[in-house]
Write a protein that binds this DNA or RNA. Sequence first.
DNA 1: GTAACTAATTACTATAGCTCGCAAGCTAT
Length: 572
Amino acid sequence: MARANDEAAALIQELADLLSITGGDAFKIRAYEKSARAIAGHPDDISGLDLAGLRKIPTVGEAIAKKILDYTTTGTIRQVEELRAQIPAGVRALTAVPTLGPKKALAVYEELGVSSVDELETAIGEGRLRGLKGFGAKTEENILRGIELMRGSGERVLVDAAAGIADEVVAALSGLPQVERCEHAGSLRRMRETIGDVDVLVASTDPRPIMAAFAALPLVHEVIASGDKKTSIRTAKGLQVDLRVVPPESWGAALQYFTGSQAHNIRTREIAVKAGLKLSEYGLFDAESGALIVSETEDEVYERLGLPWVHPALREDTGEIEAALAGELPRLVTVDDLRGDLHSHTDLTDGIAPLEDMVAAAADRGLEYYAITDHAPNLFMQRMTDEKMLAQREQVRALQASFPDLALLHGTELNIDPDGNVDWDADFLAGFDICVASIHSHFTQDQGTMTRRLVRACENPHVHVIGHPTARSIGRRAPVDADWDEVFRAAARTGTAMEIDSFPDRLDLPADLIRRAKRLGVRFSVDTDAHSVGHHRNIRYGVGTAQRGWLTPDDVINTWPLERLREFLGKA
DNA sequence: GTAACTAATTACTATAGCTCGCAAGCTAT
């Protein structure tokens, strides 16, 4: 799975981290970080590029190009090796402890020889940090809590968990008389697949009572910091929530700023500086006079910078600024664009709701078509049989009369076996309106075998969609290892769609692979994979992932009118 | 280290709050 691009980017990022510890020039460090992102996001494989080719990557100049070449020829970068010899890996790991940055990490290493998180904990226990310049009792306490957090629940949470907290905070604060506007921002608004902390923004002229009300919410376990402009709390499960209160006239600039990403903000601020402006969370200002120019809405902020409004899902500095400047931003697919859902389950297999309830829920979503795709026999615990499947088909056909505005498709979710074959022979498969095929076993095959397996599934004329293609489970199971570009070329060639599964712990395909697949001409299906009525609500996360993959409605087959979809399903 | 309207220098996002120690650095975003 790790491409040369990703490995080279990781090395360059490590170089930046190590330099920040040894106290290198801050701008040099930023240059490395920038180029690491650019290399990771570069569409072409860097292993075939020469010095000139590498330098064509934005932010990669002479020196970094040579380092990448060093990597592609020797497998590593000399400067990284040298710094590794100087700074043990454990010291770099120390900077992962919240409240312990590069400066303090270096101090404990140089003064006390501490080079791992465990050693740091011991050193604090023995009182060895006392007397170190810049380390007081409070710092000790904060580091210990940081270590505890890092080991415990302070990890990133799935997007639905963060969305639940954000919705609760926004609902509670929106009711306060002092609050003029209230929305969540941050990585949740950008729909990242996991969320480190929740950002909530309020517009008001009277912050005090809002901060007090926020700190008193039932979900608050601990108040980390509180001032007039910002209050940070932690929930019982360890999720940090930051509340910022800004004046109403700063709303647009503040929302833009707190939505991030940091990399995107750096780019927008650079554009401001070049135009003789200054952009901060309080507004867009004339750099010389300091006069406020605009900032009431995000639209105004972008417009004054010479850019169209950029959708939050694109704000990662992976090409959206260039596309915006060129007027080539994609019109992203939205939940409202979807006419159908092509992957769902009932209580015939492992769903918990009967067919009628699932179909009624689809009708409530306002869909025009809906596919029932229960599991196929080779997923043995589901006890599927030919007879059960055919009986369900009769039920679906009969139910159709009750839903004149919702076309029901009878399908199945097939299992791609280790060789790339699926359940049932061609004759039986031909009886389905749609077949999704997914990997449910043998996740650890080597890359070559896995690639052939997926390509073979695409080449099956009865397989229309590859379900949750990487089979990952976020935080629990790694994605399968395949040569994705080869899989995507097969999908494009055979007219097989790649699914974007909306389950918050799947979000599969992930956004970076979506972008690669789209470049190779692949189509997508954004589905809920619903196993209950409530799962239909997950569609927002699948659509968010599709947006992060720069997809337009035309890229997504279940935005198409039913007739066009039917043509696609007749791929054979 | 890179990019740019000084072509050899120059600028590089901007702010809040905390901590230590009483002005300034660090961390986080």
